[in-house]
């Protein structure tokens, strides 16, 4: 297994993160997030490197990581579309809109477009129920969706 190298900047960020906690392992989620934000996935090599930083076994890192839904081991598209399908959105017709979105992107839910631009996932409640139906694209929330609005949003992303 090749050795994973953090960049200088990352190393700096890592020291900053570590300062927040009296116990190193607390930095595990933040470090995984840091890696994923730069690599769009967390590779086994990165898990080993993170484990070394925090004095935990790589198995521990993988165990923790696989518990959370936001980490990926496969590369995802540049834009990760998380479409809320929980109850408030369901009541407001999200199923049809999700279908529409998939059709527009020409993929099935759970897939990534062939140009690796979009990945479309179902998501559980994102705490924006009063704006249902809604979706999250990378870090941005989009509420009160309609077919037209979805088209507009997707078209505006490059």
């Amino acid at each position: 297994m090749a050795k994973y190298k953090f960049t200088k900047n990352q190393e700096k960020e890592i020291s900053g993160i570590l300062e927040k906690y009296p116990v190193k392992t607390s930095a595990l989620l933040p470090l995984l997030t840091l890696v994923q934000r730069s690599d769009q996935l967390v590779s086994p090599e990165a898990m080993v490197a993170i484990g070394e930083k925090l004095d935990v076994s790589p198995a521990y890192v993988q165990s923790v990581m696989s518990f959370y839904t936001m980490y990926h081991t496969q590369k995802v598209g540049k834009y990760m579309i998380l479409f809320c399908i929980n109850i408030s959105c369901q009541l407001n017709g999200c199923d049809k809109l999700l279908e529409h979105t998939a059709r527009k992107l020409n993929i099935k839910v759970g897939e990534t477009t062939s140009d690796e631009k979009f990945t479309l996932h179902r998501e559980e409640c994102l705490a924006a129920c009063t704006e249902a139906p809604m979706m999250r694209v990378n870090d941005t929330y989009y509420g009160n969706l309609t077919e037209q609005r979805i088209d507009q949003i997707i078209d505006s992303l490059d």
Binding site: P44, S57, P58, Y60
Partner: peptide, 20 residues
């Protein structure tokens, strides 16, 4: 205490496994 054997994934999909 080596933490070599762990639970991966969550909920119904959890499985006893090792790193990679």
């Amino acid at each position: 205490q080596d933490c070599g054997l762990v639970m991966l994934n969550r909920g119904f999909h959890n499985e006893v496994n090792t790193f990679n």
